[in-house]
Write a protein that binds this DNA or RNA. Structure first.
Lengths: 200, 200
DNA sequence: GATTAAGTCAACCCATTGGTTGATAACGGA
DNA sequence: TCCGTTATCAACCAATGGGTTGACTTAATC
């Protein structure tokens, strides 16, 4: 360790780095909460995974619950971006399927079952509903469906490998958590919405 | 309490009734596990809800986990029946939507997220896949879809008010746990599969 | 009626878990 | 270089929660 440490302290070789520590804790929390859900997740496990003393969870986030809330709100920004870009419906569904494989997605699924926190970003949902309405107006989707409920159906369908994880495994015999499965499933969904749009 | 208790002991006015006690505990467990999930559910709450001493959970089921497993397997019989009857697809979906409002359904959803227990009955799933394949052969559903994945999609879609509970609430502004919502949603799904089948 | 078995409960036990404390080390500015 | 602040940690703490113990009560059997 003969490296001069006084200069350029932002490099990765630092003894103390609050930013990095915070980030590591959040990342570890996403993994743990995502894997086991809030109640079953252990703060000591989160700290261990982050490679950090568990007291730092209190120090930075005010405890387990604070950390969870931070996590829940932290990706609202990300979702908002995703909403803005106009893509073919296939692509939207595919990207949604993809996010269900992330830790974020898993936490989202857990939080959807519990009735504690506001899970999804309102902006995102509104934008998506509007987009569906547009597609209906353009004849891309049947006009007699309620766009809100349709969005709900499509999101649930896309999230199936996550929310119905065990069932998916039992039906297909494969692990629904892999990228291959997600791609195959997304392809199937694309096929399905094509049928929906009338063009067989 | 001047009622003669010695005669006809199977009536509801008994001091001790193991059957009833067992049933009450199971019922209470379904409610608690369904509401909060396994990890967050408290055995004392289950006992309290059942109006019974919490030790009886150990006595009858060997503890929290035993109770949970009992619960998980207890409705496999019920599901099997549901599978056998040949109904129009609308009806199948509707009954599936309906079961997502029950405590059973909620527990099922939780157990699907966690990777602990075998959640759904294998028989049931196989039967449903076969049924879908038949419908494809009959031209009722597009033949180019994989029947297994299609079942997954349909189940996920039907379970949306449960698995995407918070999101559903945010999208529609209503409580997705009510019977009215379930009916409205089932109607929407019926409409959707009709579009799928080609007959616009 | 006596004896045994089954059912139920109040009280206690102890491992787990989230959180706190106080000490210590690193960093940055005077 | 010294000092105050910030970051980090090991050890400790209180509460929670699932489980057990032992006593007591009801029901069935002889």
């Amino acid at each position: 360790m003969a490296v001069d440490q006084r200069r350029s302290p932002s490099a990765s070789e630092r003894k103390r780095d609050p930013e990095r520590t915070r980030a590591r804790i959040i990342e570890a929390a996403a993994a743990e909460f995502g894997a086991k859900g809030y109640a079953a997740a252990r703060t000591s496990d989160i700290a261990a995974r982050a490679g950090v003393n568990k007291q730092l969870i209190s120090y930075y986030f005010g405890g387990k619950e604070g950390l969870y809330k931070e996590l829940a709100t932290s990706w609202h920004g990300t979702a908002a971006e995703m909403a803005s870009q106009e893509q073919p419906l296939d692509a939207v569904l595919a990207s949604f399927v993809a996010t269900t494989l992330t830790d974020h997605g898993r936490v989202w699924a857990w939080s959807n079952l519990a009735d504690d926190s506001p899970s999804t970003d309102q902006e995102f949902l509104r934008a998506q509903v509007d987009q569906l309405r547009d597609r209906q107006a353009a004849g891309e989707l049947p006009a007699d469906l309620d766009p809100g409920l349709l969005l709900l159906t499509l999101m649930a369908a896309a999230a199936a490998p996550l929310t119905l994880r065990q069932t998916a495994r039992q039906i297909t015999g494969e692990d629904p958590g892999t990228r291959e499965f997600a791609e195959k499933y997304a392809a199937q969904l694309a096929l399905l919405v094509r049928h929906l749009s009338g063009r067989t």
